[in-house]
Design a binder for these strands. Structure first.
Lengths: 208, 208
DNA sequence: TCCGCCAAGACCGACAACCTGTCGGTTAGT
DNA sequence: ACTAACCGACAGGTTGTCGGTCTTGGCGGA
């Protein structure tokens, strides 16, 4: 007996399973057969709801990044929190790893998932940069930051950290610290902040 | 009648064709059949020399990046050129686009080539950062730069530019200029250079 | 010096085992 | 009964494998 579900429900069922499989085995190593078998639907059903495997990937990524960004925006605009703390919390809320579990964390960086990684990175950066840039702007008016190009400054810092800290775990602990210290130092320079201003906030982000 | 060639010759023949096809159609859209048909060899021959399609990709990338890096290093260590100019030329020599033709330039950024892009990026960054960092170090001793973390500074600037300027062509010309100006400004800040020092060199790199 | 032999390894192409996406037909709800 | 969710066989493609074939260069014997 076949089970019929409203399209939206079936779609999100597919996305749930796909997300979990992509996380567990990587995008390239997950076949559409894996997905339909895990759910117990037929090939045609999958393609009735999504027109290609890549569209599934896009939907999975959108779901994740949209959730992250809603959350980040909520924090970023909460004026009851002091600016610097708000900045910290906003950035921390984007820590993909904390959101979608450890499996993804491992998978995202593997070569097989270059596409997933790239798409996720693009969407996240695109959505988040304006949010954070607004905070930096606010900081400029407060006088703790100073940059004529807040958007580009944020872009630079975020792109770098997203790429460079991909393989942070693989480093020895002393090199790890060195990299983070350098990152703090350079971020302060880019943002035109007083030396040391970001020491404590960024350390917290990296949970040292 | 079958043609027999020494392994090295056949290998590089395969790499030549593969490089050209990857450049023309992208990695994912190039099948191993495309490669063997273009050369006129059999399936088994290809797999006699390379154990997988990905190994071919790796070899293609290595060939390109190694050539680029030899060239960059030659320039970077040529003490007869003034430091700033040497820096400019070193970075310009890495402009992948100038090396492997316009096709690659278009292809490298397409989503299908996420893997190619990522691998190339990693290899290039890994090899080039130390070369350029040495130049920055020299600049610090000369007094035109000042940073306690030359390696990380270079890493930050190079990673960012490699990612952020991927889609530079798609931008409107005024936003393009803004981005480049911002990049110059932030690079100066990171390197601890006097404002304006890099204006002319970096403009040249972007061929404005 | 020449010849025949032989092993190594370059080469071949059929084939297995996947994969994605399509399409006509079926069935459940409203 | 009509819409839309669902089905599964199938076409057309892919990568990688494997047993067998052909070339070639070196070597031993005449």
């Amino acid at each position: 007996m076949r089970t019929v579900k409203p399209a939206e429900e079936r779609k999100s069922e597919i996305l749930d399973v796909a997300e979990q499989l992509f996380a567990a085995k990587g995008f390239d190593n997950t076949s559409t057969n894996d997905i339909i078998n895990a759910i117990g639907i037929a090939r045609g059903t999958l393609y009735h709801h999504f027109k290609s495997k890549e569209e599934i990937l896009d939907a999975v990524i959108s779901r994740i990044t949209e959730a992250l960004m809603r959350q980040a925006e909520a924090i970023a605009t909460d004026k009851s929190i002091p600016l610097l703390e708000r900045l910290t919390k906003t950035v921390m809320s984007l820590n993909v790893e904390s959101q979608i579990g450890d499996e993804v964390k491992l998978q995202v960086h593997k070569p097989q998932n270059a596409l997933l990684h790239q798409k996720m990175h693009q969407q996240l950066i695109g959505g988040v940069v304006p949010i954070v840039a607004a905070l930096i702007d606010e900081g400029c008016r407060e006088g703790i930051f100073s940059t004529p190009y807040p958007t580009e400054a944020v872009e630079m810092v975020m792109i770098y950290s997203n790429i460079a800290f991909d393989e942070l775990e693989e480093l020895g602990s002393e090199e790890r610290v060195q990299r983070i210290q350098a990152f703090i130092y350079h971020t302060e320079r880019i943002m035109g902040a007083e030396e040391g201003l970001l020491q404590e906030p960024i350390s917290k982000i990296f949970s040292i």
